[in-house]
Structure formats: C-alpha cells, structure tokens
Amino acid sequence: MPAIISVEGLTKRYGRGITAVDGVSFQVEEKTIFGFLGPNGAGKTTTINILCTLLSPTSGRALVNGYDCKTEPRMVRSSIGIVFQDTTLDKDLTAYENLVFHAYIYGVRRAQIKPRVEEALRFMGLFDRKDDLVKRFSGGMKRRLEVARGLIHRPRVLFLDEPTLGLDPQSRSHLWEAIVLLPREHGMTVFMTTHYMEEAEVCDRIAIIDGGRIIASGSPEELKRSMGGDVIFLKTTDNALAGRKLAAALGVQPAEKEGELFFEAPRADEQVPAVIRVLSDMVLSLRLQKPTLNDVFLKLTGRRIRLEDVQGGDTIKEEVRAYRRRH
C-alpha cells in the first residue's frame, strides 16, 4: 500500500539548547491507524505540529498526501484534519455552529454543509446536543465534537494528539469505538499520539519515540513478540530447588521476585505442561503474563513511560513555550 505520510530525517531545534525532534524517519500507510508513542516531551506534539504545517522543521522532509509540509502548506492543510491536545472549540457557539464554521473555512460546498455536519454529529453521538453551547459540554463530549469536526471536510489523514488525555474511562472507550471505524468507514488514515500504552493496542503500526528519536517501530504484536514471548510466574514449595530443576530440565534461567519464580517463555503453551512435569507436586500456583507495550517501553529505555519522565517533559514544554514567546 502507498505511504500517505512520509517523513525523512526530520529535525526540530529550538534555539541552541533543545532538540525536540532528532532525525526522525517513518512512513504511514494509507487507511491504517498509526500510533506515535512516547512520554511527555519526547517530541510527539512537535512532530504533529510540523506535519500540520504549524511549525517548520529545522531540517529534513515531511510529505503528507504527497505534499511537502514546508513548501505546500495549504495543500497539506486541505488534506488533513486535526484534533489538538488542548480544546480548540469556540465555547460561546453551539456544537452545530462550531462545525458549520469549520465547513465554511475548509471550503465545503454550501449544499453539502448541513448534511455533512449532521452526519458527523450523528457519527460521534452528539446529534441530540447539537444546539447546546459548547461551554456546557463535558470534556469527553468536547473531544468527540472535535473529532466530529475533523471529519467534516473529509480529510485523507486525521491527526489526533493525545485524544483521550484527561478523559474518564467511559468517555475514552466511547471515543475509541468511533476512532477504530474511521479507516474502514471513512477511508481515513489516523495518525495519533498517546502516552497510554494500552490504547496503542488498536494501532496497525506503532513508532516509539523517546528523547526526539524513534527507538522502535512495528505492529503491536511484533513489538511484544520482540520481548521474547510470555512470562511464566510460579509459586512453589521450594523456589531455590524448583529453580535448579527447571534450569537443568528446560534450560531456562528463572529469577525470583516477591516470592515468585519467573522466566521468559517464547513457547509458553508447550512449556507449561513441561514445567508441571518437571516440578510435579512442588507447584502451588502458576500464571502466564503476556508482555504489554509498557514492558516494551521499559525494556527499550529502562524506564516506565508515565512516572518519572513527566517532570522532565514538562520542563522541556515550558522551555519550548518560552522560546516561542521570544520569537
């Protein structure tokens, strides 16, 4: 399938100090969901802003729908829809009026405005609230309205920057139900960023970004398989003895954590019966754990994605904002 987004050697420096994006290259195939994963301050939003033509790159090239983001910004803008991290709705207009504004400013033909606006509102489940002022909407409804707005001009690519940030679990799943339908029902490519690893499971392909560089990419399955498969956790009557027996019989190197033995099992379905056979009645309990994308991130960076990095990320964000104010 042809690539609808193609990025090569993209770099963005702010002033002398900060390199927000550092030589990033990737391709996104048409009608797929592409996830850009990383902690705060990893360079996700900077990359999106370059692809949306709001920022120009220091070096490198980005093509969206065949148009160069730097030299053909208007063509790029008419090919894309965007849902930003922060709300960009006019709170003093109704939901309907916000979408009509969007239809006009994107040059939708007048006869098509009403049907498209209504269709988008129905698709996102907001039709019965269309005449309410946006300031009366909850966070989840606002986000859904922004996705609805992004669909009105039928973009080839829809960008979603942290679409579920700050939403409660119910609003999140509501939003995801709609997003996963976009490639099939609307023929759109979805480019999304998130730092919720669980959410990235719906993506066809993922790129993990950290410190402005892509450190891994592939389908969620491929990335998890690169972890060496499942992990078997065991409680036994004598962990030390059981460990030695397993090492001798199966050639694995079990480690112990919080009273449990565990080891990576690339073929867990075959290995579980073998474990039981070797240890016979020493086994008190046994469980299997599938690796998650969080484990992938942990393995690649030695850090968890959410915790300690938030601080550093926010500092970079502040510096970038200060830089923009000065220029």
Binding site: C52, T53, L54, R74, M75, R77, S78, I80, I82, F84, D86, T87, T88, L89, D90, K91, H102, I105, Y106, G107, R149
Partner: peptide, 13 residues
C-alpha cells in the same frame, strides 16, 4: 482558548 489554532490550520491565506 485555542480557537485561533482551528483557524490557522485551515487551508486559507
């Protein structure tokens, strides 16, 4: 309030 971004990413001069 962010609305300017909505206008700035539109394909207009």
């Amino acid at each position: 309030f962010g609305f300017l971004k909505e206008i700035l990413v539109a394909p207009v001069r």
